[in-house]
């Protein structure tokens, strides 16, 4: 692992099921995450992914790549273009900093509209047992 290394991208199809399942699994019942009619009334063209699901997917991207010994220390994300059904989000990451016991990856998740999420994930590795 070296600074500047790029992680392989992870493509996530943004299905209606993922949006709703993620919202409910995170106990987020805001109507804009499951009810298209009410989402439209609030000015959104459709339902969209909640931030907790995005946060979880960003964490998954890192632990999928670095394996089960990965221990997440910090996830800081900022949302941009919403994830609407039918879109695809592509997560990419670049090793940004390496410390003695931790590393930070800068992540970007792009969809068909733009950058859905930008941010950083800091993690360390648990000792092998």
């Amino acid at each position: 692992m070296r600074k500047g290394d790029e992680l392989p991208p992870l493509e996530i199809p943004i299905t209606r099921t993922l949006i709703v399942a993620g919202a409910i699994a995170s106990r987020d019942y805001q109507d804009v995450h499951h009810d298209p009619e009410l989402a439209r009334q609030k000015g959104s063209p459709d339902i969209f992914m909640n931030i907790l699901t995005t946060n979880g997917l960003v964490g998954r991207y890192i632990t999928d790549h670095f394996g089960p010994r990965t221990v997440l220390r910090k996830v800081a994300i900022r949302l941009g273009a919403p994830n609407y059904p039918g879109d695809t989000m592509v997560l990419t990451g670049t090793i940004e900093a390496l410390e003695d016991t931790s590393a930070t990856v800068r992540i970007v998740g792009t969809n068909g509209i733009g950058n859905h999420v930008t941010g950083t994930v800091t993690f360390s590795m648990r000792d092998a047992e």
Partner: peptide, 27 residues
């Protein structure tokens, strides 16, 4: 349910010694 929704198959979230996905904190 969280892992199922997000497609997260990390084994540390299952079994007797399971921990919760850290990103579930807010949930």
């Amino acid at each position: 349910h969280w892992c199922e929704a997000l497609g997260d198959a990390n084994p540390v979230y299952t079994g007797p010694g399971a921990v919760a996905p850290p990103t579930m904190l807010q949930a």
